[in-house]
Amino acid sequence: MSVDPNQIKDLEQVIPKSTLELLLNPIAQEIGYSLGGLYYAIFGKLIRYGAVKKAETDALIKQVSEKYTQIPEERRTDANKGLIFKAFEDSRYSLSSEELRNLFANLIANSTDSKYLNKNSPYFSTVLKNLSVNEALFLNKFKYTQSIAITKVRFTDSKDRQFFTDYKQDYVLNKNDNPKKETVSIYSKEIDTLESLGIVRRKYGQFNNSERNDLSKIKKHINNKHLEKNLNGHFELDINSKKRPEIFLTQHQYDTVNIIPGSLELTELGQSFVEIIFA
């Protein structure tokens, strides 16, 4: 491949020398040169005019380059130039977050890997662009599994079970190296976003056998005895002690608390998405 010295000079203006050497070593490596060119096309003018922070764009291309050099040479491909361009473009909105920047770097680098050709999608950078840091961190729970246990609290009237109210849902176990320090949190906002983007789906009333232990732990963390004691149609609930008690109003005299088990699963699209951004 013939490399235009003027184009190399342009790249040197926006890409740190040590990072550029990773991309262009050897200099005639077409895919690495394409990566640098696509990066320059998106960030060249933005960097010159101070529209983005140089330190953040430097960090992005450095992560992309390091990941790219780890891909076996026989698997490198430039078939996804359009996806890479779009991913660089979408990453502009997430550069300030180290977590999101790292996921974009993984997506961009893995777009040069033939291993993911049939799993990649231009939609994936759109998904990342629409995630908050909390939602991205929540996705870490799926790094080594395709589903996790979730539960919800349901109030019912034992005399007439047609009346019920789902008080809170989407309790998830926060695992820890020390089981005694495990906690539960509600992740409805994160799950709502990921479900709306087609990455996960809620399935209450059914769960996988592998989730039984986690479901049991979540149930122990929810003080349903405390809830049952206060069920009188108008009462204060204080499930999360760090927050102010919530007032729950109802026309029905609920007298039973049920913990409904469920499973939060990656969709097929979500499985490919998670595999690529965490690879």
Rank of each mutant, 00 (worst) to 15 (best):
I8K: 06
I8Y: 12
I15F: 03
P16E: 10
T19E: 02
L20I: 09
L20E: 03
L22P: 01
L24M: 13
N25G: 08
N25E: 14
I27M: 14
G37S: 12
L38T: 01
Y39G: 00
I42L: 01
F43Y: 15
F43V: 02
F43C: 03
G44K: 02
G44E: 00
K45I: 12
R48C: 06
G50I: 07
V52M: 08
K53R: 15
K53I: 10
K54E: 07
A59I: 00
A59F: 03
L60S: 01
K62R: 15
V64T: 04
S65G: 11
E66R: 15
E66Y: 14
E66N: 15
Y68Q: 08
I71T: 05
E74R: 12
R76F: 04
R76M: 06
T77P: 06
D78V: 05
D78L: 07
F85K: 04
F85D: 02
F85M: 06
K86S: 10
A87M: 04
E89N: 14
E89L: 13
D90I: 03
S91K: 00
R92E: 03
S97K: 04
E99M: 12
F104G: 00
L107K: 00
T112R: 07
D113F: 07
K115S: 09
N118Y: 04
N118Q: 05
K119N: 07
K119C: 01
F124Y: 13
S125R: 04
T126H: 11
T126M: 13
K129I: 03
L131D: 01
V133R: 12
A136W: 09
L139P: 03
N140C: 06
K143W: 03
Q146D: 15
S147H: 03
I148G: 00
I148S: 01
T151R: 10
D157S: 13
R161Q: 13
R161W: 11
R161E: 15
Q162T: 15
Q169R: 15
Q169C: 10
N174F: 09
K175G: 02
N176F: 02
N178F: 09
K180R: 11
V184K: 02
S185K: 13
S185C: 10
Y187W: 09
K189S: 12
E190L: 06
I191L: 08
I191Y: 01
T193A: 09
S196D: 14
L197D: 08
I199P: 00
R201L: 09
R201H: 06
R202V: 06
Y204M: 07
Y204D: 06
Y204R: 09
N208H: 13
E211Y: 05
R212C: 07
L215G: 02
H221L: 14
I222N: 06
K225Q: 14
H226R: 11
H226A: 12
E228A: 15
N230M: 10
N240L: 12
K242S: 14
K242I: 14
K243M: 13
K243T: 12
I247N: 12
I247V: 15
Q251S: 14
H252P: 05
H252L: 13
V257M: 08
N258D: 12
P261V: 01
L266F: 10
L266D: 04
L266S: 06
F273R: 04
F273V: 06
V274M: 08
F278H: 07
